[in-house]
Amino acid sequence: MNHQPLDFTTTNTFFPHVSVVVPIYNGEKDLPDLISCLLAQTYPKHQVEYLLVDNNSSDRTLTFIETAAEHCPITIRPLREKQIQSSYAARNTGIRAAMSEIIAFTDADCRPQHQWLEALVEPFVNQDVTIVAGEIAALPGKTLLEQYADRQDTLSQKHTLAHKFCPYGQTANLAIRRIAFEKAGLFRPYLTTGGDADMCWRILKENIGRLEFSPRAIVQHRHRATLKELESQWRRYGRSNRYLHELHGIELMKPTTAKEYGYLLLRWLLKEVPKNSCKAIARKASLVDLLSTPIGLFTGIARYSGQKDAQLPEKAKIIDWF
């Protein structure tokens, strides 16, 4: 397969050909908004291909992708990953089919802003940059839990980029040079969470190049709106901790003791509730301020529970290659 070389134009504008890979499972409801965001990109349309990978969906995802490919004025390539039910396996299918030296990633439920791709690719003008992470911002939310997560910047890359073991970017907004996959391997196809960190860490450990953050490359994503969704999200974070501990030796999260929980709840009742209640009366605080501590304790319990119950499957250690 011939891969298109980097394109340096005479106007000093850096617009290499880019392949954007999007894994999709039952994304029929999200696809109209996603396609609209892709159509609105400021990046030159002839320099981008969008590889939308259906991961064995049971809805009309594949039909929608195929229809969009026929009628949209951008290059959409419908792909399928039917063998392995995993977003990482679907991404590998996209990587293998990609025609470009720079491969970008986002998800079906993300909303890339107009300058997303242009800003995400820009740092690659420096040849020592191998990974670029963009920012993940919240879509407007109305529920208490969405407002809490927004206040905490739960989705922001600033947390992953500041990881004490090694920085990494989330695949909701990430771009990687093809050569990095050739040298470090593709995603672990049977891994169900933690694959973003695993991929970045393997690349960085090989000293293939450096990671750079592009804050202007923004995608928006929904926060979890219900306690069930929030618990599932934080249990997944806990499973990721366990898997990455077994794969890379990162430190596991320590459980909060009953004494520590008691102290935090007592401080909340005796100090934070009266203080924030007064502020709320003066319209200087909201319900989010009032309930921030118990929600934080809830997510912490869910995360530790996910870590404690997780066990890395043997097949999840497998690394795919070209």
Rank of each mutant, 00 (worst) to 15 (best):
K183Y: 02
P167T: 04
T226A: 07
R178V: 10
G169A: 12
L186M: 11
R188Q: 14
F187R: 03
K183D: 04
Q220G: 12
S214I: 08
F165R: 07
H163R: 07
F181V: 10
A162R: 10
Y190P: 04
F165T: 14
S214Y: 02
A175M: 06
L211G: 01
P167C: 08
N173P: 08
G194F: 01
H223W: 14
M199E: 02
K183A: 12
R202W: 03
G195C: 10
E182S: 13
N173T: 07
R177V: 06
R202P: 01
F181S: 10
D196K: 03
H221N: 11
L186Q: 08
P167S: 10
R178S: 11
L204H: 06
G195F: 01
H163W: 11
F165N: 13
A180T: 09
I208N: 01
D198L: 10
E182K: 13
A217T: 04
A197I: 06
Q220C: 13
L211F: 03
S214G: 08
H221Q: 15
D198Y: 03
L204A: 06
R222E: 12
W201E: 09
I218G: 10
R210T: 15
E206N: 15
A162C: 10
R188L: 05
N207R: 14
C200E: 07
T226D: 06
P215S: 10
T226H: 06
K205L: 12
F213A: 12
L186Y: 09
T171I: 10
K164M: 02
K205D: 14
A175F: 04
V219G: 07
A175V: 02
F213N: 05
H223D: 10
R188M: 08
N173K: 05
F213Q: 08
G195E: 12
R202K: 14
Y190N: 14
I218W: 07
C166D: 07
G209F: 08
H221A: 06
G194T: 08
H221C: 09
K164N: 14
G195S: 13
D198A: 15
F213K: 05
A225P: 00
E206K: 15
T193L: 01
L204P: 08
A180L: 03
L191A: 12
H223F: 15
T171F: 14
I203C: 01
A175D: 04
L204S: 07
C166S: 14
L211Q: 04
P167G: 12
R177D: 07
I203G: 02
G195W: 03
A162P: 00
A172H: 12
T171E: 09
E182C: 09
A180W: 03
A184Y: 06
T192E: 12
R202M: 05
L174V: 05
P189S: 13
G185R: 07
N173S: 15
Q170C: 09
T193E: 12
W201F: 10
I218E: 11
V219C: 10
E212L: 08
E182A: 14
L204C: 05
R188K: 13
C166T: 01
L174R: 04
I208R: 01
